[in-house]
Design a protein around this nucleic acid. Structure first.
Length: 204
DNA sequence: CGCAGGATGGGCT
DNA sequence: GCCCATCCTGCGG
């Protein structure tokens, strides 16, 4: 399976990109060169500068948010809560700060290494959250601004197309401060996936 | 199972 | 000095 082409990311509709990232495969090579990967099963769209929940709300442009003003197909990785990282994909043209947060994966390759990186955790929670998947794949700020067309982190086409009926949507998580924007249904997930994040979405 | 509380540090007002 | 696009543990039912 090949890497998703630049044109996948540079499209103007960040909601479409967020939906269509479901089923694709996020890959990060381990230090020994082996692959650690997972199928993307949950995403959220962030549409700055209008979107109050976006770090780029109001056109805010700082050293951290500068990444989002790059061209679609760039990794935006930042640090939160003093101990976690979040992996996002920049979309749209340069200077348009849109991005998609990857919230959960279904582990595919490198599961042994994921277990070492997530000691004491059951397999079911190796990558079922945005901070967890970064730990499992070894994603940190050194990957901020990485080009997804490069060889440090990338996304490959999944093996099967995802029918629309398998995709669910709802409000984004952890952005209650964002007023009306907090209720927009810009979170997308694969309905039947056991790996979708648990927080505020109790299993069945 | 659910929920409360703590950890922990960079980013920005 | 306050705010987080979170996770984990421990405790109660």
């Amino acid at each position: 399976m090949g890497k998703l082409p630049r044109e996948f990311y540079t499209r103007a509709d960040v909601l479409a990109v967020a939906r269509q990232l479901l089923g694709q495969v996020l890959v990060v090579p381990a230090p020994d060169g082996t692959r650690v990967s997972g199928v993307i099963v949950e995403t959220e769209a962030y549409r700055g500068p209008q979107d109050r929940a976006s770090h780029a709300f109001g056109g805010r442009r700082t050293n951290r948010t500068e990444t989002m003003y790059g061209i679609g197909g760039t990794a935006y990785v930042y640090f939160v809560y003093g101990m976690y990282h979040q992996f996002n994909v920049v979309t749209n043209a340069a200077e348009v700060p849109h991005a998609v947060l990857v919230r959960a994966l279904e582990p595919v390759e490198g599961i042994e290494l994921m277990r070492l990186r997530r000691p004491g955790q059951p397999d079911a929670s190796l990558t079922d959250g945005p901070g967890k998947l970064c730990m499992a794949l070894g994603i940190d700020r050194t990957l901020d601004r990485a080009d997804l067309a490069g060889d440090r982190v990338w996304i490959e086409e999944g093996s099967q197309p995802i029918p629309r009926s398998r995709i669910a949507c709802g409000p984004r998580i952890g952005i209650d401060y964002a007023g009306a924007w907090a209720s927009k249904p810009w979170r997308f997930w694969l309905r039947e996936s056991p790996s979708v994040s648990r927080r505020r979405s109790p299993r069945r």
